[in-house]
């Protein structure tokens, strides 16, 4: 089966006045279906820029992006938008729920946007909220929810249209450890169900959920490898072994 996502020599250069500032310099990346890739690296290493480009939120300077076997880096802004509706889900650090809409509406919006009938959209909303254990908060405003709950809603919204690819930019960057655990559990769950995920993170606990870690440094990939899983045992054993 072909890769969900493939980039070839992807480059992004910002113009700061007359000085070109390279943010991403030639990234080759391939994500297989169902794979969970974590992108790590110090701040300023270009990880956010990379993931924004993968979702078409930012235009690439050169290089190629292939999504589901189709070349997408040449798409216009509008075409990208149409593509995102069905193929790409986004989760951000600051949740980015539409502040004025209720939690339920936030989850329902992408389904409506993708052209699903209002009835189906309503059903999908119910099932997603049910899975998140947020059914009773459906009519609350996002601001009334805790950070973790908001991020879970954002995740539900990103997954509403069963996208080929879930892109996440520091999804736990703004959460405390308890909320992080909630979001992690959910991410792990959708990954087990076969969702392909590319996630930028700083948080080793989140990254450790991934199948693969890609380390960026100064806009380049410096390491790309699978995370080995070996040990089993009780807390005392695992930790003592260290």
């Amino acid at each position: 089966m072909s890769a969900v996502l493939k980039t070839v020599n992807l480059v992004k250069i910002y113009q700061d006045g007359a000085i070109p500032v390279p943010a991403v310099r030639g990234v080759d990346l391939q994500v297989e279906p169902g794979e969970f890739v974590a992108i790590m690296g110090p701040s300023g290493s270009g990880k956010s820029t990379l993931v924004h480009m993968l979702g078409g939120l930012d235009a690439r300077t050169s290089g190629e992006i292939w999504l589901d076997g189709k070349r997408v880096d040449t798409l216009s802004e509008s075409a990208w938008a149409l593509l995102r509706r069905k193929k790409v889900g986004f989760v951000f650090q600051f949740f980015n729920l539409v502040a004025n809409m209720t939690v339920g509406d936030n989850v329902e919006l992408p389904a409506l946007l993708a052209g699903v009938s209002p009835k189906v959209a309503r059903e999908r909303r119910e099932s997603l909220l049910g899975a998140l254990d947020l059914t009773d908060r459906a009519d609350a405003a996002p601001a009334q929810l805790s950070g973790g709950e908001q991020q879970r809603v954002a995740l539900a919204r990103a997954l509403a249209n069963q996208p080929s690819l879930l892109l996440a930019d520091e999804p736990t960057g703004n959460l405390d450890s308890r909320n992080t655990r909630d979001v992690l559990r959910l991410l792990g769950k959708v990954h087990k169900e076969g969702q392909s995920i590319v996630m930028v993170t700083h948080d080793a606990r989140v990254a450790a959920l991934a199948d693969r870690v890609v380390s960026l440094f100064d806009g380049e990939v410096v390491d790309d490898g699978r995370i080995a899983r070996r040990r089993r045992g009780t807390a005392g054993e695992v930790i003592d072994l260290r």
Partner: peptide
Amino acid sequence: RMALINRQRRHYLSLMSDLNDLLN
């Protein structure tokens, strides 16, 4: 050094992954 750091990071992440499993 880069190779050392990368290897070490993977090792740490794999430990972290074990701890995650353990936690679950």
